[in-house]
Design a protein around this nucleic acid. Structure first.
Lengths: 155, 155
DNA sequence: GTCCTTGTTGCGACTCTTTGCAAATCATTC
DNA sequence: GAATGATTTGCAAAGAGTCGCAACAAGGAC
């Protein structure tokens, strides 16, 4: 997981490689896994205390638009960012227990192609999150005893 | 598009049908098409000035959880809500021009079933939004003249 | 009706994210 | 290297949505 490619892409597309952007990129690359904007801020401020959270968000948007980082919105807390590397995948997010299941990228290829074919629509299916219920949470809901009529509300 | 069913569902599931909830529901039902939380607030406050925006959000979450209303998150502005009626569909949202294309519900049936089969995951594909580029915006990007190196940035 | 439990509301404070703007920075052209 | 114009940043403020909590209903048991 390196960010060399990202630097090149930035320059090549005419955006400036500013110290701030470099630091944000390095932080994302340095972290294994996901980071939030605030975490990036804390890390970057260790060497450059003046960086503003707005700059970080703007940088993240830019990097996302260039498909250099991907964003995961867990819904309910801050968004997570990670370097768009090789191990890319979609997410199945269980609304019951919060667990996320990785879905191979290729899984949505069919959909992608039929949208292109039938609607001439180029969907951006880079890093997709599908919400629902995992098998365990589904099982927990079947056979709700008559006793506790409100059990289902809790999920 | 009536909300009678919604009232029954609320009562039947053990939730209380409060005046506030009723007013929110009536506003959504009364509006043709989508409404934002703030619009609901403005409308409801005409007859009951004390309703709080938090109550509206809480009611909307509840109704969404009961599949009585659907939420569309246009990303970049406030979420839109509408009564879950018969003409349900998914959305293709163009990030270039903002246009939305309606996608038949059945379109994601395959995906839905293979997720169930292969991952035992019951995806909530009630009202789905896919981001990407429509044909026009795609066309606008091809053949960018060398003249304006920054043209692509604007999309 | 009174008591009790549970659900719901309004308020205020808070979080996360975006936006407007003036100042600073950088690439280009002369 | 100074002038010019486009980008980018930091700051402050706003937007959108959420949360904790005390006060307020509403339904059931007695």
């Amino acid at each position: 997981m390196h960010h060399g490619k990202a630097l090149t892409t930035l320059k090549e597309t005419g955006y400036r490689l500013t110290p701030q952007r470099l630091m944000v990129l390095e932080t994302i690359a340095g972290a294994r896994g996901h980071v939030t904007a605030e975490e990036i801020g804390t890390q970057v401020r260790r060497t450059y205390p003046y960086i503003d959270i707005a700059t970080i968000y703007r940088t993240l948007h830019l990097l996302k638009r260039l498909h250099l980082v991907t964003e995961i919105d867990p819904g309910g807390s801050s968004a997570q960012y990670e370097l768009a590397g090789d191990g890319r995948h979609h997410h199945l997010i269980c609304e019951g227990c919060g667990k996320t299941i990785d879905l191979p990228l290729a899984y949505l290829d069919n959909l992608h192609q039929s949208l292109r074919r039938e609607f001439e629509f180029e969907a951006d299916l880079d890093h997709f999150a599908l919400r629902g219920r995992c098998s365990q949470c589904l099982a927990a809901r079947t056979g709700t005893p008559r006793k506790d009529r409100n059990a289902w509300k809790r999920l």
